[in-house]
Nucleic acid binder design. Structure first.
Lengths: 145, 145
DNA sequence: ATGTAATAGTTGTTTTTGTAACTAACAAGC
DNA sequence: GCTTGTTAGTTACAAAAACAACTATTACAT
């Protein structure tokens, strides 16, 4: 039985997850940063709009588990760069519909392709099965309340 | 064959890793933050010293893949709280040996125990085998240059 | 020995984030 | 209709991270 007494903190999941997340984000981060001047939160908002089309800031918050201030600022910057448009809802004037512009779509497609390639490099050497297990467990950990 | 065209960005490893890392860090973060007023980098430095005993800031940097400014500031705060002591090396006066005080050790032991419990909760419901696969793949991703 | 480079660690400045408080619009109960 | 509460989103301020420049010391080559 493995108790707390001989627990190896180097194997602590939050630590391993952070290490892996930081390391694996590094290379891809450079792409959206250097090429498009984007921050991580902006990339997240962008790809959610790319996937789902038009949605509100709250929708994004729910889907991406992002706080509303992060979204608010990311949306501002993306709007400045003309990657998205904001449309006030007519039935509920608190709400704003967000959608990518043509330019935003192009950036999304480009980044998505780069992401696909980079993802392939990351799982290179892993078995299909292990990679699938990894993704599924990560999803599960991410959804944990 | 799965090409970039139909790649689902929601399955992008860096994204999943960041989501899982953020979510899983949350609960534990509160412990070292609220109970000991520590930041993540301080917790990292602390547990490295707890594991390896005396080491230099550079050693920690190598082991934990942390930048030296992060370490420098974390060490400062830990020293202020009397969780560690700094000893100038006699043979090379640029170097400082860091080691936990008795109080630092106690904090480390307490956090380690909490971490062990929390880790157990995280893997609860996973098979032993899957949990092991997860840790091993994370380690591998973390070490990627 | 002496100028050049490298290493250990710190400090200063700028960006980003986190937290809380805020405005505006809507909803519901009485 | 008017108070109370809720939701959408923004803004202000404080905390933290990133990045670059810095000091001090040692190593190395000529």
């Amino acid at each position: 039985m493995t108790g707390p007494a001989d627990f190896d903190v180097r194997q602590f999941l939050p630590y391993l997850l952070n290490q892996a997340a930081e390391a694996s984000s590094l290379e891809f981060q450079k792409v959206y940063k250097d090429k498009y001047g984007m921050l991580r939160n902006e990339w997240r908002v962008l790809f959610h709009l790319g996937i789902y089309g038009q949605m509100t800031a709250s929708d994004i918050g729910t889907r991406a588990q992002m706080h509303k201030t992060k979204i608010s600022r990311a949306v501002q910057r993306l709007a400045e760069r003309r990657y998205l448009t904001r449309t006030r809802a007519e039935d509920d004037r608190r709400v704003e519909y967000l959608a990518l512009t043509a330019m935003g779509q192009k950036v999304y497609q480009d980044l998505k392709k780069t992401a696909a390639d980079y993802d392939a490099a990351l799982v290179d050497g892993m078995s299909e099965k292990d990679a699938a297990t990894l993704r599924s467990l990560l999803e599960r950990l991410a959804l944990r309340p």
